[in-house]
C-alpha cells in the first residue's frame, strides 16, 4: 500500500519535471512587438554615445530593448530575405534587422517606408561594430 503511494508521487514528480523541461526546451523567442522599451532615444545622440565611449554604451544598452527615432537612410534586403533598415548614416548609423514574422504580417508598413523620412523602430540592441546593431526589430511608426 505504502509503495503504491510512493510510486504515484514519484510518477507525478516525473511528469511535472518532464513538463517543465519540455517547456524550457521549447520556450519561444521573446516577441519583440510585445516587449516594452527599456530606453526611448533619438538616433543621432545614440550614435554619438557609442562613438565617444563604446564600452560604457555597450554596458548600458546591450541586450536592452530600444525604441529609436531617426531618419531612414536605406531600406534593403539581405541575401537570406531579411529586411534591413539603416538609420541616419549608411556606413556608421544604426543597422536594424527586422523580425521576419513581423515583416510577413506588415508588408504594407515596409512598403510605405521612404528613405529620408523619419522612422521609429523598436528592437534589441546588440552593441557596436562600425555601426549600432539592432536585431530583431520592428517598425513602430
Amino acid at each position: 500500500m505504502k509503495i503504491r503511494y510512493i510510486l504515484i508521487i514519484v510518477l507525478i514528480l516525473f511528469i511535472i519535471g518532464a513538463g517543465v523541461g519540455l517547456r524550457m526546451f521549447f520556450k519561444p523567442h521573446a516577441d519583440i512587438n510585445r516587449l516594452k522599451p527599456d530606453f526611448k532615444v533619438e538616433a543621432a545622440p545614440l550614435i554619438d554615445e557609442f562613438q565617444k565611449a563604446e564600452d560604457a554604451a555597450t554596458a548600458k544598452y546591450s541586450e536592452k530593448v530600444l525604441e529609436i527615432t531617426g531618419k531612414l537612410a536605406t531600406k534593403s534586403q539581405l541575401p537570406n530575405g531579411t529586411t534591413l533598415l539603416i538609420l541616419e548614416d549608411e556606413m556608421q548609423g544604426i543597422s536594424c534587422q527586422l523580425d521576419s514574422n513581423w515583416v510577413t504580417a506588415n508588408q504594407a508598413v515596409i512598403q510605405s517606408l521612404e528613405p529620408g523620412k523619419p522612422v521609429t523602430v523598436k528592437g534589441v540592441c546588440k552593441g557596436y561594430l562600425m555601426e549600432i546593431k539592432v536585431s530583431p526589430a520592428v517598425v513602430v511608426k
Binding site: E63, T82, S95, L129, M130, K133
Partner: peptide
C-alpha cells in the same frame, strides 16, 4: 549571424572579420 563586419584589403590580401556574439540567432 548576418551582422558580421568584414574588410578585405585589395592591395595586400589582408582580410579581417569581426562579429558580436549575441547577434547569432
Amino acid at each position: 549571424s548576418n551582422e558580421a563586419v568584414s574588410i578585405l584589403n585589395g592591395e595586400t590580401g589582408e582580410v579581417g572579420f569581426q562579429a558580436i556574439m549575441t547577434t547569432f540567432h
